[in-house]
C-alpha cells in the first residue's frame, strides 16, 4: 500500500468557437497524440486525464463541446458543476478570439468564478508570438487566471497549460473545502442534485 493517497475528480470545460482545435488539444493533452496515424474512436468517454499531484490522485474529466457550438443554450446547461474551464481560440483566426469574451461570459453567468485559462492554440502557425502586455491586460479584464500560447500539433506548452490549471483547481478546492480535503473517503461529487428544487436550494445557500 502506498500510504494515504487521496482521490479527486474535477470537471473541466473546454470551450471556444468551432474549428479552433479543441479536440486536437484534448487529444494531445490526454493521449499525447496528434492525428497522423491515430484512430479516433467514438462513443467513449475518452477525455479522462489522470495526474498525480503531490499526494493526491487527480482525475481530470475534460468536457468537450466540439461540433455542438451551435446548440448555444444546451451547452450552457452542461456548464453546471464544472470546477475549471479552458477557453480555446485559434491565433490565426481573429474571429475565434473575438468570441472569447462571449464564452467567458457564458461560463461566468452559469458558474461561480471558476478558474479559467485562456488557450491560444495553433501558435506553430504564427510567425511572431502574441503581445504579452495586451494579452495580460485582456486576461485581467475578462478574469482569466492566465493564458498560454500552445500548439496541439507540435505539443508546445499543452502539458504546462494543463498543469497550471490543475494547480489552481487544487488550490481553490482546498480553500473551499478545507475540512473535506483530508477525508479520503469522500471525493468531490461530480453529480449534481438532479432535483431542481434541491439545486436551487443549494445554490441559494452557497450564494
Amino acid at each position: 500500500m502506498e500510504g494515504e493517497t487521496e482521490e479527486r475528480d474535477y470537471k473541466v470545460l473546454v470551450v471556444g468557437e468551432g474549428g479552433c482545435g479543441k479536440t486536437s488539444y484534448i487529444n494531445q493533452y490526454v493521449n499525447h497524440i496528434f492525428s497522423k496515424a491515430y484512430k479516433a474512436t467514438v462513443g467513449v468517454d475518452f477525455a479522462l486525464k489522470q495526474v498525480q499531484w503531490e499526494n493526491t490522485r487527480v482525475r481530470l474529466a475534460l468536457w468537450d463541446i466540439a461540433g455542438q457550438e451551435r446548440f448555444n443554450h444546451m451547452t450552457r446547461v452542461y456548464y453546471k458543476g464544472a470546477h475549471g474551464a479552458m477557453v480555446v481560440f485559434d491565433v490565426t483566426k481573429d474571429k475565434t478570439f473575438q468570441a472569447v469574451p462571449r464564452w467567458k461570459k457564458d461560463i461566468d453567468s452559469n458558474l461561480d468564478n471558476i478558474p479559467t485559462v485562456l488557450v491560444a492554440n495553433k501558435c506553430d502557425l504564427l510567425d511572431n508570438p502574441l503581445d504579452t502586455e495586451t494579452m495580460e491586460k485582456f486576461c485581467a479584464q475578462h478574469g482569466f487566471i492566465g493564458w498560454y500560447e500552445t500548439s496541439a500539433k507540435e505539443n508546445i506548452r499543452v502539458e504546462d497549460c494543463g498543469t497550471f490549471l490543475l494547480e489552481h483547481l487544487v488550490k481553490r478546492d482546498r480553500e473551499l473545502n478545507p475540512g473535506k480535503y483530508t477525508n479520503t473517503e469522500k471525493t468531490v461529487s461530480l453529480t449534481q442534485a438532479s432535483d431542481p428544487r434541491l439545486a436551487a436550494k443549494t445554490c441559494n445557500n452557497s450564494c
Partner: peptide, 25 residues
C-alpha cells in the same frame, strides 16, 4: 444531432490522406 456532430469532429481528427493515398478506413 449534437451527438453525431461531436463524433464527426472526432473522426475528422483522423487524416484523410496518408502519403497521397486516401484512407479508406
Amino acid at each position: 444531432v449534437g451527438i453525431w456532430l461531436h463524433d464527426l469532429v472526432f473522426l475528422e481528427e483522423n487524416p484523410t490522406f496518408i502519403q497521397g493515398r486516401v484512407s479508406f478506413e
